[in-house]
Amino acid sequence: MIGSIIIGILAGFLAGKLMRGGGFGCLWNLLLGVVGGAVGGWVFSLFDISWEGSWIGQLVTAVIGAVLVLYVASLFRRK
């Protein structure tokens, strides 16, 4: 559980660096990264892809999910 949270936080940090404009700030990127880890796992399960044994695979999954979450959240962001 704590490992998953740490991977989600790291994924949020990396997703914030990958997104144009830096995302929503450090704290929000980290929180959205934790949510993104769950979203990434769900998206990858739709394609029957699982990297449960590898923490690098879990990190990649979480980063992809966090980028998706940050992108969707940016659509609702006021300018």
Score class of each variant (00 low, 15 high):
9 I>C: 11
55 W>V: 11
28 W>P: 04
12 G>K: 01
13 F>T: 10
32 L>I: 08
29 N>Q: 04
2 I>N: 05
24 F>M: 03
65 G>H: 01
37 G>L: 07
39 V>R: 02
16 G>R: 00
30 L>P: 04
51 W>V: 02
23 G>N: 13
70 L>I: 09
17 K>Q: 14
59 L>D: 10
17 K>V: 06
4 S>Q: 12
18 L>C: 06
75 L>S: 15
34 V>H: 03
23 G>D: 10
41 G>P: 02
50 S>V: 05
72 V>H: 01
4 S>G: 15
22 G>C: 02
78 R>W: 13
1 M>V: 06
37 G>Y: 06
7 I>K: 05
70 L>R: 07
78 R>A: 13
76 F>P: 03
59 L>N: 09
71 Y>S: 14
62 A>M: 13
33 G>L: 01
77 R>N: 11
6 I>C: 14
30 L>I: 10
58 Q>V: 06
7 I>F: 01
28 W>R: 14
60 V>Y: 14
24 F>N: 03
67 V>P: 01
49 I>R: 06
20 R>L: 07
55 W>H: 05
76 F>E: 10
70 L>K: 04
26 C>P: 08
61 T>G: 15
35 V>M: 13
66 A>I: 00
40 G>L: 09
11 A>K: 06
77 R>M: 08
55 W>G: 07
76 F>G: 15
28 W>I: 06
2 I>K: 05
54 S>T: 05
55 W>D: 09
35 V>Y: 06
4 S>H: 12
41 G>K: 00
37 G>E: 10
31 L>G: 15
30 L>Q: 05
